[in-house]
């Protein structure tokens, strides 16, 4: 038996909205320590990982590890039927072929349940090594969203370079070039509005803007995003989901051939 209860459906709604265009389907791996997901986009250029920890839920029970194959577009359809403030409970019997989602309104005068058919999804699990990055940059997630959106109007790829001057995003295209630099800035009183650049060594990498834009669909989840960069390795774009866990997007760089 698996059962997990969240006090606010909005969190799960935002998570699924953040994922569903990049990865159409994937396995929710449930265990006593929580729910995790690892999925690649259809072109195998990026990897999405999700970790929701058991102690971040209001209630969490998992008697047996299970892999639940989910079509995120279909899960999104069901979650659109939940109110943002509804309590949401996910339930499945051991070896079930469906996941039940129960929504309860705040004053408990409306209760609904939806069963989502589960799929059998073959997926290759990749090992992601713990690693020290050359640069780790925390910035407002809305700022990240704006930068990658603005640059997309100029070019297809972006050169991200982190130096002691700041983090610079550069692109070029048919109409011209663009550079946006963010400096380390701890002036704003609200920590969410600050930019922190933790630099071990300068690093510069090129990425496809299309994917970086897609990751920004996670912006409503949290006010800050973290970018981790190392030469010749995928960038990690990480959004924390409160105390519950985090979603991470790994994007392979473009490398000169």
């Amino acid at each position: 038996m698996f059962e997990a209860r969240l006090p606010q459906a909005a969190v799960l709604k935002k998570l699924v909205e953040a994922l569903k265009e990049l990865v159409t389907e994937g396995n929710f791996d449930v265990s006593p320590s929580g729910i995790s997901l690892q999925a690649m986009d259809s072109s195998h250029v990026c990897l999405v990982t999700l970790q929701l920890n058991d102690d971040g839920f209001e209630h969490f029970r998992c008697d047996r590890n299970m892999s639940m194959g989910i079509h995120f577009g279909n899960l999104s359809k069901i979650l659109k039927c939940a109110g943002n403030e509804d309590t949401i409970t996910l339930k499945a019997e051991d070896n079930a072929d469906q996941l039940t989602l129960m929504f309860e309104s705040a004053n408990q005068d409306r209760i609904s349940d939806f069963d989502l058919k589960l799929m059998s999804i073959e997926s290759e699990h990749l090992g992601i090594p713990d690693q020290d990055y050359s640069a780790e940059v925390k910035m407002p997630s809305a700022e990240y969203q704006r930068i990658v959106r603005d640059l997309t109007s100029m070019g297809d790829t972006v050169l991200v370079s982190a130096t002691k001057e700041g983090i610079k995003f550069s692109t070029s295209g048919d109409i011209g070039t663009a550079n946006i630099t963010l400096r380390h800035n701890t002036t704003p009183e609200k920590e969410d509005e600050q930019t922190h650049i933790d630099l071990k060594e300068p690093v510069a990498l090129t990425f496809a803007l299309r994917y970086l834009n897609n990751f920004a669909k996670a912006t409503p989840l949290t006010p800050q995003v973290k970018l981790s960069l190392t030469k010749d390795l995928p960038v990690v774009v990480e959004y924390k989901v409160g105390e519950l866990g985090q979603v991470r997007f790994f994007l392979a760089p473009k490398i000169d051939d």
């Binding site: 250029v45 290759e124 990749l126 992601i128 790994f250 473009k254 051939d257």
Partner: peptide, 14 residues
């Protein structure tokens, strides 16, 4: 030019 690498070129199957 630059080539788009596949993500599985960086992470081995677990």
């Amino acid at each position: 030019g630059s080539a788009q690498k596949s993500i599985s070129a960086f992470f081995k199957a677990a």
